[in-house]
Simulated scan of single mutants.
Amino acid sequence: MTQTYRLLLVEDEPLILMDLEFAAGDRDCTVHCASTCARALAILEETNEEIDVAVLDVSLGRGETCFPIADALRRRGIPFILHSGDLDRHDELIRTLDAPLIAKPASAEKVIGAAIACVAGNETNEVRLAAE
């Protein structure tokens, strides 16, 4: 029997979000999707901490970043990975989050596999491999 994980996906690009959602569904994950900080934080409150792991896009448009979401996840003890194409603009800030990073473009399957590895106890090897 496979474990079902509950994922929070935060991405402002609709096609990337949809691709991640489908890849997570293919792995029998329960998925909560958000494209803004406000929606992601509301999901965290609504789900009463029933999120196992999150995938966060760093830049969410209109000058918004995932940093408030990352802080909320840390306070709840929920692991997360970063999925970003803005390494030139946010490299130093991303390092302060001390989370696994998968640079865009990357396959949705690779990103979801890395997220599941974070929560399934295989973080060190699988996440590093996915990030390469």
Rank of each mutant, 00 (worst) to 15 (best):
L41Y: 03
A42Q: 15
I43F: 05
L41Q: 00
F67H: 09
A54F: 02
K110F: 12
L56H: 00
S35L: 14
F67D: 14
A40G: 04
I69P: 00
T36A: 04
E45W: 12
A106T: 03
D12G: 06
A120E: 13
A34I: 02
E92N: 15
M18S: 14
R75Y: 15
A38H: 11
D28L: 15
E45R: 13
I69Y: 00
R62I: 09
L73M: 05
L101V: 14
T4C: 13
I16E: 05
L8K: 04
V55L: 00
L15I: 12
H32A: 14
S59K: 15
E13H: 09
A99W: 01
L87P: 13
A106P: 06
A120D: 10
D26G: 12
L73S: 01
D98R: 14
A23F: 00
S107T: 06
H90I: 14
L15Q: 12
N48F: 14
A23E: 01
A103D: 05
A70Q: 01
A114K: 05
V111I: 03
R39F: 09
R62G: 15
I16V: 06
D19I: 05
G77M: 10
R39H: 10
L56N: 04
E49P: 11
A34M: 00
G61Q: 08
E13V: 08
A108F: 07
G113S: 08
A38M: 10
C29K: 03
A42H: 06
E64Q: 10
E92Q: 13
I51R: 07
Y5H: 12
R75P: 13
P79H: 07
I16M: 04
R62E: 15
S59N: 15
D88W: 11
A106G: 05
S107G: 06
A24Y: 02
A103F: 03
D52R: 06
A115P: 03
T30S: 11
E45C: 10
L44Q: 04
L87R: 15
D12F: 08
L60P: 03
K104H: 02
